[in-house]
Amino acid sequence: MSTAENTTDPSVHRPGRPEDLPAAPVLWARWGLLAGLLSTREREAEREIHRAGYWMASGRDDTLRFYDGGASWWALRRAGDGRYVLYGEDESSEVKWQEEAIDVLGGAPDWLPLELLRDLVESYMIGCVYWYEDGAWARAPYPAGLADDGLDCGMSRLFTTGRAADEVEPWMDHETADPDAEVDPEAAARLLTDAVSGSVGEEAVRAFLVDAGLAEEEIPGALVTLRRTGLLAE
């Protein structure tokens, strides 16, 4: 995977606009790297309903997930042929509380997992849906009065290299890592940049995790997750 990266700090609109999002392969690379770096055997054994942080969906190599442990959950799914769909909810979203319902699937292409998304909509579990095709994001139209769809509070943590690097330390599993070790944000940023450019290497990942204090026996699992994302070669 190799995609040009915009490392500037974007001004994110509320409600979100398609142009606020980084290119989907960039978002996948950042998210996927975090899923790998933060993978441990204990976390991989958890039921997804109880899991928090960044991870690759159980039994699915096409879906990355995030849950902040409170009121923000998201998923990014690859649909093949350069297509992706981002969906989820942050408590800041006002979409499902509108007096006149907003159809978040309005204008959506038929390659989306529509049955899944409709079930989530009907269960009042979705704040927004964005889809990516032909190198551009899109979403359903919103009414003029909508203040927020949750994209900023929910996903802007991955919109720049620096913000994504800052996500590593808070989500490290300190029960399986040396509590006295520290995560180097500059090293994390280098790995993220390499992931986006398609040049992340196993030795660099291993060295980062050792320096971050992760137990040696946990590292193979992290590498397996990174291979599942496609960021590391098989």
Rank of each mutant, 00 (worst) to 15 (best):
44 E>A: 06
176 T>W: 14
40 T>S: 11
46 E>R: 15
91 E>W: 10
138 A>I: 11
208 F>A: 02
194 D>P: 03
2 S>N: 14
47 R>N: 11
77 R>S: 04
208 F>C: 00
232 L>W: 07
119 D>P: 04
100 E>H: 13
138 A>L: 05
15 P>C: 02
227 R>K: 13
7 T>N: 14
201 G>W: 05
156 S>D: 05
57 A>Q: 07
70 G>T: 08
57 A>L: 00
60 R>G: 00
105 L>F: 12
89 E>L: 00
119 D>M: 08
13 H>A: 14
42 E>Y: 11
137 W>E: 07
229 T>C: 00
217 E>A: 09
89 E>Y: 05
5 E>T: 14
214 L>H: 08
100 E>M: 03
198 G>V: 06
2 S>C: 04
212 A>E: 10
32 G>E: 09
141 P>R: 05
117 L>D: 11
197 S>M: 10
138 A>H: 10
203 E>K: 13
105 L>K: 12
129 V>I: 10
63 T>A: 00
3 T>M: 13
4 A>V: 13
148 D>H: 14
59 G>W: 06
17 R>V: 04
125 M>W: 07
143 P>V: 05
150 G>N: 06
83 R>G: 05
78 R>L: 03
18 P>Y: 08
16 G>Q: 06
192 L>F: 07
195 A>H: 13
12 V>N: 09
97 W>I: 03
94 E>L: 13
152 D>T: 01
106 G>T: 04
83 R>K: 14
36 G>R: 11
133 E>N: 11
216 E>Q: 13
124 Y>N: 10
48 E>S: 01
72 S>A: 05
63 T>Y: 00
147 A>C: 05
